Computed example of a mutant assay.
Amino acid sequence: MSIIAFIGLGRMGAPMAAHLVAAGHTVRGVEINPAAAAAAAERGVHIVPSAAEALRGADACLTSLPKPEHVRAAYGGDDGILAHAASATLLMDTSTVDVETSRWCHTQAEERGLSFVDAPISGGTAGAEAHTLTFMLGGRDDAVDRAREVVAPMAGNVIACGEAGAGIAAKLVNNMMLFIGVMAVSEGSQLAEQLGLDPKVFWDVARVSSGDSWPLRTWYPVPGVLERSAADNNFDATFSVDLARKDCGLAVHAGDVTGVHLPAARLALSQLDDLIAEGLGAKDCTLVAKLASPDGTLRGYDPALDRTLEGTRS
């Protein structure tokens, strides 16, 4: 089986790497958070101190990092991935970044005779654990074919989206639509509550009617409707406001670059900014439902139980 370097073992990277281990691969991981590194090690990942060591003899290298600047730092510089990858090592970035950063990775890799595929993912932490993620691949046909085999143990769907940057472009558009959908479900859930509808009954109606959507079926922001929902856990993050804001902001930036008008996306972005201004960036993005509530309170959310606010209390 293959040797795979995995850079970034957070809430997405750790279960993804664990599925590669379960498939029989040797996975060498790099993670700066000690607790996250220890958790990944418990799942069979060999933790090493540097990208250079992780890449030694590696057949493939995957990165799963929070922001574009982290991706550029991981790939660039004397200690970066590009400096230590062998010509036979396939490089893949699963992070959600701007199109410019993804194309930079492709260009930098090509200049060094390396193969790079942008390979962003959809499905969230639940999909990462269940190895049902959708991978959106962009790059040369031969590299994409190799990437299909590498990601198979983590994936429910693998879609070749086109040339360099096509995968990340598809991801940004998809996530923009997701956050607009979250806003619709948030407003609908609160209006249904105020009209006296039983939340589970209304959810059953919407799920088989024209109001159906992925965020309705997966992230409905009312407690007692879905198993393991953020609404049943004081809106602790499955997909944080901070990360949602980053992804939505990247999509709006793409709209600025291309001249596409995105009024709904801008409204979703402004609502995420409102939550961040309240100190709620670490909470789940479906907490935007409280912005639709008549008095700003939300059933299922108790600020007094919110550990993320402890540091902001006077």
Results as ranks from 00 to 15, higher is better:
His106Val: 07
Gly127Val: 13
Cys105Ala: 11
Ser102Pro: 00
Ser87His: 14
Thr94Gly: 08
Ile81Asp: 02
His106Lys: 08
Ala164Cys: 09
Glu163Phe: 02
Gly76Ser: 11
Ala119Ser: 14
Phe179Arg: 01
Gly76Thr: 02
Gly123Gln: 10
Met92Ala: 08
Thr132Lys: 11
Gly76Val: 02
Glu110Trp: 00
His131Ile: 01
Gln190Thr: 11
Gln194Ser: 15
Leu191Phe: 14
Ser189Thr: 11
Glu187Asn: 11
Ala169Leu: 09
Glu163Val: 07
Ala152Lys: 15
Ser115Lys: 03
Asp204Trp: 00
Gly181Leu: 05
Ser210Cys: 05
Asp141Val: 14
Ser95Asn: 06
Gln194Ala: 15
Met177Thr: 05
Thr134Lys: 04
Ile121Tyr: 01
Val173Ser: 09
Thr89His: 10
Ala85Arg: 04
Gly162Trp: 11
Ala155Thr: 12
Tyr75Asn: 01
Asp212Ile: 06
Ala192Arg: 13
Pro153Tyr: 10
Lys200Val: 15
Leu195Asn: 10
Ala152Asp: 06
Ala192Leu: 09
Ala88Gln: 14
Cys161His: 04
Arg207Val: 08
Glu163Cys: 05
Asp142Lys: 14
Ile168Gly: 01
Trp104Thr: 06
Phe179Gly: 00
Glu100Asp: 13
Glu149Ala: 15
Gly167Ile: 04
Ser115Gly: 08
Val208Met: 09
Leu178Met: 12
Pro68Lys: 04
Val205Gln: 02
Gly211Glu: 05
Ser210Glu: 00
Asp204Met: 00
Ala88Asp: 13
Pro66Lys: 06
Asp93Trp: 10
Pro153Asp: 03
Thr107Lys: 04
Val208Lys: 14
Lys200Phe: 06
Ile121Met: 15
Leu114Pro: 05
Met154Pro: 04
Met177Arg: 07
Met92Leu: 15
Ala86Thr: 06
Val205Glu: 03
Ala147Phe: 10
Ala83Asp: 01
Arg140Trp: 00
Ile121Leu: 13
Ser102His: 03
Ser87Gly: 09
Val99His: 10
Asn175Val: 08
Asp98Ile: 08
